[in-house]
């Protein structure tokens, strides 16, 4: 197993390979893929295209096709999550940060596959996409304990139908999660951390964000619509899990 580590999008990427590292050109292409998304979609960069849209210096209809397509995809996710996932900041500015990291990860996977790399594990700031296996076994990932950064709640294998896992939490950088007004939902606890296992990283990442924002109602809705597994942590540390995660190493059914 080999590891390539680099920084992008304000975080650190850990890219592991089951065998030897691929060529330097392949690794550079992966890094360039992230940097390209960051250059266009980062609101932290005043010169990015989306910053120009946010500042009303660029009309949306004159923006690049790539920006408009990603915005349209984000709006689709807003519809599928009853607004729990949204590409708009509370002040109305378009913010695609909730989508772009996962999109860059998916694009990097295409780069790796095209280069002939089959066994790898891509961890970008805690969201993970995998391919193949390591030493003949599935890649195995842990889910961090939000109350103890040095401990894990459980460990799960990543398999072909569950290649991706994303975790959203209230400790998240910048918290690109705008909690909905939960009035009318009684005293149900809000989740402090939500992990979603899915076949692809965009679904996992978007739904982890949506369930963190939308609470139990959004969890029920997502489970009815999507083929995912979910582990939630509530404010007092209580855990719930779907069937596929209840058997995760380290967990037992209550």
């Amino acid at each position: 197993m080999t590891v390539h580590i680099f920084e992008t999008m304000g975080t650190t990427v850990s890219l592991r390979f089951g065998g030897a590292l691929p060529s330097a050109a392949t690794l550079a292409a992966v890094e360039a893929c992230f940097d390209r998304f960051d250059a266009r979609f980062s609101l932290y960069r005043p010169d990015s295209e989306i910053s120009r849209v946010a500042a009303a210096n660029l009309a949306l209809y004159r923006a690049s096709a790539e920006l408009r397509e990603n915005y349209a995809e984000a709006l689709d996710w807003r519809g599928r999550t009853s607004g729990a996932f949204t590409p708009h900041r509370p002040d109305g500015v378009i913010d695609l940060n909730g989508l772009i990291k996962a999109k860059a990860m998916a694009a990097s996977a295409v780069v790796l596959v095209a280069a002939g790399s089959t066994d790898w594990l891509l961890n970008v700031g805690g969201d993970i996409l995998s391919s193949g296996s390591v030493d003949g076994s599935p890649w195995s990932v842990g889910i961090v304990d939000p109350l103890d950064a040095a401990g894990m709640l459980c460990a799960v294998p990543l398999t072909p139908g569950r290649r991706a896992i994303a975790t959203s939490g209230t400790a998240e950088r910048g918290e690109h999660v705008w909690r909905r007004d939960v009035a009318g939902q009684g005293d149900e606890p809000a989740y402090s951390q939500v992990s979603v296992l899915a076949a692809d990283i965009v679904t996992a990442d978007v739904l982890a964000t949506a369930i963190l924002a939308g609470g139990r109602a959004q969890l029920t809705s997502a489970l009815a619509q999507f083929d995912i597994e979910v582990l939630t942590v509530d404010a007092s540390g209580g855990l719930t899990a779907t069937a596929g995660l209840r058997s995760g190493r380290g967990l037992v059914r209550a």
């Binding site: 594990l121 961890n123 969201d127 842990g142 889910i143 961090v144 939000p146």
Partner: peptide, 8 residues
């Protein structure tokens, strides 16, 4: 485990 998933 080879990876750890958590809030960004």
């Amino acid at each position: 485990v080879q990876g750890v998933s958590g809030a960004t």
